[in-house]
Design a protein around this nucleic acid. Structure first.
Lengths: 215, 215
DNA sequence: TGCAAATTTGCACAGCAGGCAAGAATAGTC
DNA sequence: GACTATTCTTGCCTGCTGTGCAAATTTGCA
């Protein structure tokens, strides 16, 4: 296997992983989550039921699907090095919008999942729960940014990660809002645009809050 | 059954519900989540395994436990009617702090759960996910507040609920941060204080963001 | 081609979870 | 206090979920 190329093995694994997720979601739309069995899913995905569990720990995990992953290092660096002139939340807005725009081949799965999970708020909430990993990764990046922008925070590592985590969680709240309105609109407007819109509204709210706090 | 009093039936139901949650958490601390069976839980809670499922849909649901409920109407009214002079996030900070302070008899369960779930981030995340219901209830209250404060928003019901939802989700992000630092500190400082502290920090961030957005 | 490593599969089994109907406890009525 | 309706608990039975293990298959590499 030549350097840089992705081996057949890994490609097959990814394909199987996606086939399973696609199968669950399609069957869910057809007959509802509870009526779908692992046996059916496996049949549709062309694997044995035992193999299903080599890929996902549970039927639920397959329905929820893989979480998002961080944008590439170049995008991250752009965010980290934007400098103290740009406010952090605006920077996050751009970073996240960029991230979802580069979804690429996962787009079909994204829409299938949106439709299927819309019927199951519990599963949707569970998917949100799996975002914890993403949140943690994001918090690290935010910390990198704060470290550069704010020498005072940089001197206190504990306060730094604490602050980074707060910002990340708040930004994540905005992200959830963007997702919700995207889903409400049946995905007609790109998710990235929703994100920018939501963060814009957030800025409005903050400005209002600010004027009240000082006024 | 006299008016106002809670019947024996309901009291017993609540007691059983709490006994189950207590049993799961204690067994979890003793031997780990996976090693705990519904049979053991039922035995410790003095009910049949079948009855267990009359109370909780799954072992997981019992481990996660009941979500929080809204504060009393008097507290809600105080928040709703605080007037446009108080910024909404500050108001939410007080409302939420008040809510957790009136936990009362659930306090033992609260601490038991904190300890037990700390070992299981997945379950903790799941518990966060079940807060959706709480979020929705809270969003309704926030909408009531906005309707009073902002005539412009009141005229557009859709924009109103959308805005209320965004504020709620952002506040919930802050709440998650408060929970995290409370759990980190082993619950030594009251959760309510953590909440106030976190919302204070949030205000700081907003001030910074504001000065950058206008500067 | 042939060997080593990774992956898939079948099999067996414990535990989860729900439908159903019989029995027990509770509430309301007289 | 006895009677009846309602609600709750329990046992039984069943199907599905999820895992350990070992055999069989596929892929990577020389």
């Amino acid at each position: 296997m030549s350097i840089g190329a992705v081996g057949l093995r890994e490609r097959k694994r990814l394909a199987t992983r996606r086939a399973i997720q696609k199968a669950v979601l399609e069957l869910m739309e057809e007959k509802g989550y509870d009526q779908v069995t692992v046996e059916e899913i496996s049949h549709l995905a062309d694997i044995s039921p035992r193999t299903f569990f080599n890929y996902f720990a549970s039927k639920e995990a397959a329905a929820i699907g893989d979480g998002p992953s961080l944008p590439g290092e170049s995008d991250l660096a752009a965010f980290v090095e934007a400098g103290p002139g740009q406010d952090v939340l605006s920077g996050l807005s751009e970073l996240l919008a960029t991230a979802v725009e580069s979804a690429g081949d996962e787009l079909e799965l994204l829409h299938l999942r949106r439709r299927a999970l819309k019927e199951y708020p519990q599963l949707f909430a569970l998917r949100m729960a799996t975002m914890r990993v993403f949140e943690d990764e994001l918090a690290v990046v935010v910390a990198r940014r704060l470290e550069r922008d704010d020498p005072q925070l940089a001197a206190d590592p504990e306060a730094l990660t604490d602050r980074a985590r707060l910002i990340t969680l708040v930004a994540f709240g905005a992200m959830r809002h963007a997702w919700a309105s995207w889903a409400d609109a049946e995905g007609r407007m790109p998710l990235a645009d929703r994100l920018r819109d939501t963060f814009g509204q957030l800025a409005e709210i903050l400005v209002t809050a600010r004027s009240k706090m000082i006024g």
